[in-house]
Design a protein around this nucleic acid. Structure first.
Lengths: 207, 207, 207, 207
DNA sequence: CATGAATGAGGTTTCATTCAT
DNA sequence: AATGAATGAAACCTCATTCAT
């Protein structure tokens, strides 16, 4: 990369450090919120977890609520991005549905803390619950669009695409929750295949 | 009724009054927690809503958490009871599934406050989330049992009964949440029939 | 007093206690603010001085600023009232001027803490300084009115009544401040007579 | 100029820069303290106003309090110097009194920020109030001396020179405060002449 | 039983000061 | 000399719980 390009695209060292610190704080906060919830997740603990002083948190975020939002925003954005990418990478509807469920189950496995927050405290701030649906909406609608096309092409029976897509989201979310709560670790693939079979049986059914 | 019987079965006036007061407090708390969440639902507001002094709350409950638990306990017990009764009242599996979803959708409509708590703050206390699954478990298992029988009798295809029952619960819960969040009031029956069709198409599918 | 009258005029015990507690807090706050100023006068210290817990302060006042205002409001109201009464009690202009200065000097002596606040921190809140002039205005204007009449009647030379009244207030205030700061305690009457002579010499001057 | 002289009288470039920077900071601090008061005038804002980093303030001053003192010290010293010069430049007592009041009113006009600090927050630091009287003392005493002489010469009636001088200072200060608070801009000369007439009438009075 | 004033531990946030770069 | 990110002590304020009446 040439100097000019570098000058335009590179971040200053300050910016890099600053973003890194923000990320550290968000990580620490996710851990603490997942452990204690929003109300019990206190600033002292987040600071300690992040390895900074309490005052430092306020250099990067205006309030505890802002930190909480930053955690959700970051993780939801990533989840949405992953989901959309995996959806688009698949051709057929069956593949898309599997992708939708699979990517979310996988990320829930890898990022249990975040899903525990989503699952259990999303309503602590009136902001969050409806915000969650917003983040979910775009992937669901893209799935709905694929359902609509498949129905037109006679690949599946005629269903309301959007409503159906939301049901798929419901099943996925429920499965994730059960996995998070369950003691025994069932294989992810098994759960994924089970819900896919259930859904596909409904969609491909010849009545 | 004789004295002996009275001694065993009758409640003293004290008890009646006491239980009535407890119920009033639980009602007030439900309203407040639904409005503000657990952390923001403060004792002053519950007392005001219940029309008693704050100190009185502590005559009937040991702590704020106990009140919260009492709300959930009361409402979940009732929901479980209704669900089981309606399940048992139906003969066929299709009827049972419809009953399961319908009774829950209906009660969500009639008791929005409770479902809003369930929906958005169920994890405020570490206690709650797993407790919720426990209350849900018995109805789901009874539904699973019906699914198992129907499969044995060849009425539906062979599926894992318990897993399937949980999926039905997922779909029901998701539909309730969407209804609570949605601005426009869609007819309950339409939502219920849609999810029933989806589920039944899967179960009755001839592949 | 009859029962009916008592019922109408008497305060409930609650109200009496409540007002007493408010007064205690205001007294404590005056002491602390006089000692430390507004910023350094911390709530813990006010609470300790008042002999109550910190939280109690917030049962009676919404914030530290409100307490501060309450101190000023209470004392200024009393000072204004005293000044007006003593002004009205005097017939001649000379007597009125003496009364104006005297009552303020006296109260400054008896209530040094309050005057120390007024003197030294009145601008900590943008609110206060102009508010002080408002409290002072009415007594000054009444004095001005007396000056105007005396001038009309030829008792004194013709002067701008309001401007002159403000000068009298300036002299009074300055004298009070010097007394508060000074180590040696000069007799109040001496200071009062001195300023009265100075003012009167000016007003009664035949040039 | 020779080296030796230079060594004694000249400032090194370092010193010049350093003093210049100090002056910049003092200017910035005056602006901020006048706007917000001592407690609310925060170091961040002073640094921004001065166009330097916050840490730089501590290269030139040991603490916030030192900056505050430096502002007062600088401005009071200048005010005192001006006042003394103008007092000495006048021959007669009447001229000296006019000069005393006039120079202070003028400087208050030109340097409102400083006078606003003096007016409203002079007691924020226990240090300040008595310090203020100290700065004022010398001009007042010189005025008192002139009053004493005039009285001896029979130019005015016999009065306590020092007490009288303080009253003149009171009137001047009060007039300045009213001008700073007042919305409408009355001509400075009018206010000055009014207070001069009032004072002179008293001093020159033949009773 | 009922009350609600009082409590004080514990939370969030601010900001003067330090110090590594 | 200059910077400004980091610090953490200390402030304000809240609210679950207690207890004298």
């Amino acid at each position: 990369m040439g100097e000019a390009a570098a000058g335009a695209a590179m971040k200053t060292k300050q910016q890099v450090v600053s973003e890194f610190r923000r990320a550290e704080i968000v990580d620490a906060a996710r851990t603490v919120f997942a452990r204690k919830g929003f109300a019990q997740g206190i600033m002292d603990e987040i600071a300690k977890e992040a390895g900074v002083a309490k005052g430092t948190l306020y250099l990067y975020f205006r309030s505890k609520t802002e930190i909480y939002k930053a955690v959700l925003d970051h993780d939801m954005r990533a989840l949405k991005k992953s989901t959309l990418e995996r959806l688009d990478a698949e051709k057929g509807l069956r593949g898309k549905i599997r992708a939708f469920a699979f990517v979310r189950l996988e990320r829930a496995e890898a990022n249990k803390e975040f899903f525990r927050i989503m699952d259990s405290e999303s309503g602590a701030l009136s902001y969050t619950r409806s915000q969650y649906r917003d983040w979910l909406r775009e992937p669901v609608l893209r799935l709905a669009s694929a359902i609509g096309k498949a129905a037109e092409q006679g690949k599946i029976r005629r269903v309301d695409p959007e409503k159906t897509a939301w049901l798929i989201a419901d099943i996925t979310r429920g499965t994730i929750q059960r996995r998070l709560l369950s003691q025994k670790e069932t294989p992810l693939a098994a759960d994924a295949e089970f819900l896919l079979d259930f859904i596909w049986a409904s969609l491909a059914a010849k009545l």
